[in-house]
Nucleic acid binder design. Sequence first.
DNA 1: CTGAAAGCGCTTACAG
DNA 2: CTGAAAGCGCTTACAG
Lengths: 347, 347
Amino acid sequence: MATKVNGSSGKDLDGGAVTILDLARELRLSKTTVADALAGSGRVSTETRDRVRELAEKWGYVSNRAARSLRTRSTGALGLYVPPTVRTAPFYMEFALGGAERAASAGFDLTLFAQRPARRRDFGVDGAVVIDMSAADELPRQLVAAGVPVVAAGRILGHEGEHAVIETPDREMAHQMFELMRSRGARRIAFVTPLHDFAVAWAVDVSEAYVAWCGQADQEVLMRSISVAATDTELAAAIDEVVRIPGVDALVLAAEGWAARAKPMLTAHGVDVGGSFQLGSLAGDPLTDGADAAISRVDLGARAFGVDAFDLLLDILSGAADRAAVRVHPARLVPASVHPGAARRDD
Amino acid sequence: MATKVNGSSGKDLDGGAVTILDLARELRLSKTTVADALAGSGRVSTETRDRVRELAEKWGYVSNRAARSLRTRSTGALGLYVPPTVRTAPFYMEFALGGAERAASAGFDLTLFAQRPARRRDFGVDGAVVIDMSAADELPRQLVAAGVPVVAAGRILGHEGEHAVIETPDREMAHQMFELMRSRGARRIAFVTPLHDFAVAWAVDVSEAYVAWCGQADQEVLMRSISVAATDTELAAAIDEVVRIPGVDALVLAAEGWAARAKPMLTAHGVDVGGSFQLGSLAGDPLTDGADAAISRVDLGARAFGVDAFDLLLDILSGAADRAAVRVHPARLVPASVHPGAARRDD
DNA sequence: CTGAAAGCGCTTACAG
DNA sequence: CTGAAAGCGCTTACAG
């Protein structure tokens, strides 16, 4: 245990990092006093505090995370789990980054959980957010069992009340979309859902909202279900089917990016998208579906959603919110702009 | 320190998690023996090992991460830093998830570093990957100074040799793109780069490759630079300019997603994209530019790139690779399909 | 094959 | 205002 010297440099030449004990020895103070000076707990005289801080700065002292964590039983990290199937969608990226931002602003790191967590483990986080989890996924349960506070972004079907939840008003937004299209003249609205292999609360909600709206609008249910990770071929097949249904003059696609991908397919069928035919996305962020003004979309505000989810988690950690709190994250409907070209064609 | 009892349940009722000491007391063994049995170091008799493991399983013992980390000076986590400007691009999401996957398969968690790291800190990782860093960013330097092994995905201009590097063959791929277009009849190829505010090695490389190719192909340099986060308005302005240049019959856009967004803009100008006019992307992943077969693209294989980057980092940690190792991650050129529609129009 | 002990670097009662 | 000491839960020489 060589004394840290070599004055000016913060870099230690003997391999070990600078510790509180190193500072204490040099300043002829106790560990306690140095720790207090560093922590800023009022017990220490201003002069001592300044001496300690000066040397700490000079020697490049950084508090050892593991030691602190062992003592305080907190890790300084928050976890995020995104289900494997949808990982690559921009929506989740935005969400994750919003979350990372919020976590960082509170001094926490963000740990991305891997798809298949080891059997039993120390998660190494003070709390976790999970998003769009299927009821079958075991991770939320494991987290709760390990005593980790959990926020589910999108409730987990059949597990309500087991943890906190933050949700977008999915049924309401879907309803608004259908109403918008009808107000713009749509008579028969078809709907494509990822319920096929993505039966999470959001997908169930919007699908049920469609069926409910059909009942209320006295319209036949024209729903197709495809994989949330549908290839162009699969998507095109669904589009083909829809186009063949007589009288369909509007199509709402649930999942992110589907509308933008469907548009050229519709156009290839001679459909006048944005003109006599309306196209909508229920998860249309600015990057994908939003790039095309001919598409009406529900913007779920992915980034802000991530911020809000971690906000809730932080509130739970601070005691400001209940472990089973439920919050709503607002979404907004962005109607397609009725463009001149479309109008002209109607003339 | 209540003895852990209440038999069947792994959940402890007194708040503290099960520790090695709890197991040792129950089994009337020493901490050492229990630890060895758990770790599988050969010193322990099969019988003792089984007894220990059985109880550990039954009581739901999980090794305390902080304590282990404090002793072993390793954290079990790897870090990733993606610059704020480009965070939301699918490319980086894919990269991050490939990385998370590789890290997980080696038993490491993935920590996403926040944009603005605190002044001085314990990064809490055993190694880190940074991607497309500008030379001005301080994080890589801080990591290296803290003794954290670093892999730069895309070298950092002016900091070569300070850490390991993994790169795609950017100049080569750009060159191939221009050659492809010329072989398909292009006479004047314009180029749009994000050098404006994203002067990372990749952007510099492809831009220089364009200029070099122009020299060699005896073509005028027709280059525009816009923000890597260009809005549709900004992108449209650049497209307008390009379209006005006499004789331009091909356009290569460097950044991800630009080509897909540019296509409708070009079409609006009456340009026959995929027919008499060629369009290309130098960062065209399957999700964005790749969705349109009329776009030629360089697929950088983002996910595999992430895997390879963390692979290199793990090799460095295990001593299998040098701290200043340099590797290449392959990319591939995906030519636009010359579609029938285009041919027909030429008739 | 098993145990007693030290120590990783910190925080936190407890004293004075 | 400052100090001596215990202890978080683990790993790792060192003994026997």
